[in-house]
Design a protein around this nucleic acid. Structure first.
Lengths: 200, 200
DNA sequence: GCTAACACTTGATCCAAATCAAGTAATTAT
DNA sequence: ATAATTACTTGATTTGGATCAAGTGTTAGC
C-alpha cells in the first residue's frame, strides 16, 4: 500500500500541493463534508471512522505514513467517513482536480495509483475474512500470522495499543487479552512486552 | 461498480478479448493459480471465496453482471482467492498484459477503472462496518437500508436466497430468519415473499 | 405426479464474547 | 514527586448468536 511513487510527481504539478499538520485527536475532514482533497500521510496515523448512529462508531481503516486516504474524493462529492489523527500527524494535500489531471496525463502515476487501490482492496478483504473466524484466539492468530511479511519470519512487533487492535478485529480489549493468554498457554506464541513470537 | 465502460474498448484491442461460459458451480480460477487474466462478468454471478483452513470458507464478494473480478491479477503473480460461478455465468476474459497496456494508453478507461476500484473499496468498507453491528436485527436493518439506492425508496427485492445473505452478513440462516421476524414485529419492515418494505 | 433436495422457520440448548466490575502497572500531566 | 489518566488483566455474570434438531413449504429432477 506504499504510495511513495505518488510523491514522484511531475515537477510543474508538485508545486501545487501543500502539507497540513494535525495534532493528536484533530479532525482532517468529516463525514458529509464536501470532498475536495485526496491525502497522503507523511507522518503519524490517521483513523477513518463512520458514525452509524448516536452511540456507535465503526473504525474503517488506520492510515499510516506513506499511505493514502480519501480516494473516494476523486469520484464522489462528499466524504463518506470522518478522518481523525490518532497521534500528531502530517499529510500532503492533493486537490481533487489536480490529482485527476495528473492521473490522466501520467500513465505511470496512474498505474501506481491503481496498484495502491488494489492493495487496499486486498487488505479490506483480509479484514473481512478475519471477521468470519468466530473464535477469538483463532482470529487473533490468523491476524498475527498475516502481520508477518515473510513466512520465515516469526516476530511481530505490535506498534499500537492492544485495545486499538481489539477494535480492528471486532473484539473488546478483554477478549484480546484472554485470546493472547490462551495462545501463549497453548504454546502458539510467546510474548515479550509488545513483541509476539510465533511458534511454527 | 458498473464497468460497462471497459467494454467500450479501443477497436484494435477489443479483438483480443474472449468470452468464457461457466456452469453453475464451475470454478473460474483457484487460489494460488497463476494470475493471468482479469474478468468482467456479463451474465450470472461469480462468488469469490477463500479457504482459510480445511473446514472454513470465507466468501469475499459476490460479483454480478457488469462487475469485474481479479483486479489483483494486474499487480500480483497469483490469485488470492477462488472464483466459483453461483449460477450459469459468462465472463469476458482480459489478458493481464493487454489490460495494463490499455490502461496505460487510454486515460479515460484508466479513470473508469479507478472509479470501479474505489467503489469496490467503499463496498468492502460498508461490509466491514456492518460487522461492527453485533445485534442481528440491527445489522440486517442497516444492510437493508443500504440496499435502497435512493432515500425516498422503501422497497428492497432480495434476489438471492436468505442463506446466502446470511453468509454475507456473517450470520446463520436461523439468525437472519429470526432477525427479519423481529424487524417485522417491531414494525421496522414489512415482508411479502422476497420483497421487503422499509417503514420509515 | 412423485420424490428429493433445498429454503426457510421454530424451538431448545450451548457456548463464547460482551459486559460489568475491580485491580495493577505504566505512562503522562501537573 | 505525586496525581491522574490510560493500558492491560482478571473474575463473575449476562447475553445473544451458533448449533442441533425437527418440521413445513417450495422447487427441481426423474
Amino acid at each position: 500500500m506504499d504510495l511513495t511513487d505518488i510523491l514522484r510527481l511531475p515537477e510543474p504539478l508538485r508545486n501545487n500541493i501543500t502539507t497540513q499538520n494535525l495534532a493528536a485527536g484533530e479532525t482532517l475532514f468529516t463525514q458529509e463534508d464536501e470532498a475536495t482533497n485526496f491525502y497522503l500521510v507523511t507522518l503519524g496515523r490517521i483513523k477513518l471512522v463512520r458514525y452509524i448512529n448516536e452511540d456507535r462508531v465503526s473504525t474503517f481503516e488506520i492510515v499510516r505514513a506513506s499511505q493514502s486516504l480519501a480516494e473516494i474524493a476523486l469520484f464522489e462529492d462528499i466524504y463518506t467517513c470522518t478522518a481523525i489523527a490518532e497521534v500528531d500527524s502530517e499529510v500532503i494535500v492533493y486537490p481533487k482536480e489536480l490529482l485527476l489531471s495528473i492521473l490522466r496525463s501520467y500513465p505511470d502515476v496512474a498505474i501506481d495509483f491503481m496498484e495502491m487501490l488494489v492493495k487496499k482492496i486486498q487488505s479490506l478483504k483480509f479484514r473481512l475474512e478475519l471477521r468470519d473466524i468466530r473464535i477469538a484466539h483463532e482470529r487473533v492468530l490468523h491476524y498475527l500470522r498475516h502481520l508477518v511479511n515473510f513466512p520465515e519470519e516469526t516476530t511481530v512487533v505490535l506498534d499500537r495499543p492492544l485495545k486499538d487492535i481489539a477494535n480492528d478485529l471486532g473484539f473488546t480489549p478483554e477478549t484480546i487479552s484472554r485470546a493472547l493468554i490462551k495462545l501463549e498457554t497453548d504454546a502458539a506464541i510467546a510474548r515479550q512486552e509488545n513483541i509476539i513470537i510465533l511458534q511454527k
